[in-house]
């Protein structure tokens, strides 16, 4: 199973670096007035990485080979779930290094470093997105799964606009503090556990679907 994760990394190694760098810099520079920079780093980047990985698999039709190898479906599915969190780690790391460097050199557009609460939000965010998307992918394949992708992209574009509007109407809720307020330690832990639960359910569903898949 480790092989499957390594395989993904290998396949995307160039993209991983460029994309992550690019999006993070972009996020920091453009969106830095809100908590959004590290949300982009934590949610958007890993999600895009997942999409490109799946697109590539689809293009290659390599699922035929993978499923002809002596490897259990559970492992194939697990590898997919884990890869996303690795993308997450890489992205956050990249983001943190960037913000650290920016702060170090006192660059005017320094971004907000990631806080613990932020990590929780990111984890929950990715967890939920993945829990919904992956079973759809394993059941219907990449092409039909694009429907969800479109929905999500649209939502991702609308949400910031809505957020801006809300904040605009409630100036006493400056964006960057919202996160900290929302997530106290106890709430944080509960949210994390809930997300783990949802992920587990999603995983089992994905495995069940994938076992029935035809190639």
């Amino acid at each position: 199973m480790a092989q499957l994760i390594i395989k993904d990394m290998l396949l995307q190694r160039k993209r991983l670096i460029y994309f992550t760098l690019f999006y993070n810099v972009f996020a920091i520079l453009i969106l830095q007035d809100f908590f959004l920079p590290y949300l982009v780093a934590g949610i958007v980047v890993p999600y895009i990485m997942l999409q490109t990985a799946l697109a590539y698999e689809e293009m290659n039709k390599s699922e035929i080979v993978i499923n002809s190898l002596p490897v259990r479906k559970e492992k194939i599915v697990l590898a997919r779930y884990l890869t996303i969190f690795i993308y997450l780690l890489i992205s956050i790391l990249c983001y943190s290094i960037l913000t650290f460097l920016m702060n170090l050199f006192n660059l005017p557009l320094a971004g907000e470093p990631v806080s613990l609460a932020g990590i929780v939000v990111i984890f929950v965010g990715i967890g939920i997105i993945v829990s919904i998307y992956l079973p759809i992918f394993f059941r219907y394949g990449y092409i039909k799964g694009r429907v969800f992708h479109t929905v999500f992209t649209v939502a991702a574009l609308i949400l910031p606009t809505v957020a801006v509007k809300i904040i605009g109407e409630n100036p006493e809720l400056p964006g960057r503090f919202v996160v900290e307020d929302l997530v106290g330690v106890r709430t944080g832990i509960i949210l994390l556990l809930l997300t783990l639960l949802i992920l587990t359910i999603s995983f089992n569903l994905s495995v069940w679907f994938y076992k029935k898949r035809e190639f």
Binding site: L10, Y56, S62, I64
Partner: peptide
């Protein structure tokens, strides 16, 4: 159906 971006050796490493 193998990954054409990878080299023979890399692909073999995975398989």
């Amino acid at each position: 159906y193998y990954y054409d971006e990878l080299t023979v050796e890399e692909m073999k490493g995975i398989i």
